[in-house]
């Protein structure tokens, strides 16, 4: 068995809503005891609808938020950002790509600077070397030299998502958390970005935690699938297990609700419509 890059043991996250004039204080259980393990070079997809806690979990894995309870292990090492300061080394290991590429890039920052910033903060590389690394990464994600001095507004949504991916990869992370990276993109652009992610995974041996609500994308990219519902992992297994034999009723509902685009389903629907 190969190396486990990230492991969660019974992760819990509660949010406390303060009481005011109009309401009592209450606690929202966003994540209720979720456990998972991802091997090196594999992709874990987390599926669920809005409010199910998948983005909260992503923030915990990315070391942005701390968990209320439970353990998080990155490369076998226990991490608790509430107690210990986050080292640059840990920061390097885990990176995130957000959903909306229009919101995640600073409009006043040139692309070259966007890519160099993680290096400036976390390493002591010289300007020349940083520039060199940024240029190389730009090429890796399918952009060119000429894009180095441009601003985010000059790029399309797909290109911006490439830039966000490039930025995340600047520090050679071992784990990349992708929070709905393609849901804001057009179908054809989505295909390009998914291809890019597959190529990069192969080249750098990256491990992905891929958050999505689109089952067809998940089926394409994931090795393992976790389905979340109201903060709980109701289904967790290999892709083929989950897709061919879903156990939980919510997973079944989710599959049934996904629109089908194959010819047989269309025929069946048209026949039903004619009969009605």
């Amino acid at each position: 068995m190969s190396e486990i890059i990230v492991e969660g043991r019974n992760i819990v996250r509660d949010y406390h809503v303060r009481g005011g004039v109009f309401g009592k204080a209450r606690t929202i259980h966003a994540v209720k005891g979720v456990s998972f393990k991802v091997e090196k070079g594999k992709t874990l997809a987390i599926v669920g609808e809005s409010g199910c806690g998948k983005s909260t979990l992503a923030r915990i894995i990315t070391l942005i938020d701390e968990a209320t309870a439970g353990e998080l292990l990155i490369e076998g090492q226990k991490v608790d950002i509430a107690r210990q300061r986050l080292t640059p080394e840990l920061r390097r290991k885990v990176q995130i790509v957000f959903q909306n590429p229009y919101g995640s890039l600073n409009p006043r920052q040139k692309i070259g600077d966007v890519l160099q910033e993680p290096l400036i903060i976390n390493t002591d590389k010289g300007a020349e070397e940083r520039r060199e690394l940024a240029m190389r990464m730009l090429k890796k994600v399918g952009l060119g030299h000429e894009h180095f001095n441009r601003y985010p507004h000059m790029f399309s949504g797909g290109q911006r998502q490439r830039i966000a991916i490039a930025r995340a990869l600047m520090l050679n992370p071992s784990l990349l958390v992708l929070d709905e990276p393609v849901s804001a993109l057009d179908l054809s652009v989505q295909a390009q970005v998914l291809n890019l992610l597959a190529d990069l995974q192969e080249e750098f041996g990256l491990t992905y935690v891929f958050i999505s609500h689109d089952l067809s994308v998940v089926r394409y990219i994931a090795d393992e699938v976790m389905v979340m519902y109201f903060g709980e992992a109701v289904e967790y297994g290999s892709r083929d297990e989950v897709f061919s034999n879903p156990q939980h009723s919510y997973t079944k509902t989710l599959f049934a609700a996904t629109p089908r685009a194959d010819v047989e389903s269309i025929r069946a629907r048209l026949a039903r419509r004619r009969a009605a």
Binding site: S188, A191, A261
Partner: peptide
């Protein structure tokens, strides 16, 4: 192109693009 860019129609390792 649109139809084959659907991830569920993927046949190989890569998705065809436009």
């Amino acid at each position: 192109a649109l139809l084959s860019a659907l991830p569920e129609n993927a046949t190989g390792d890569r998705l065809p693009t436009i």
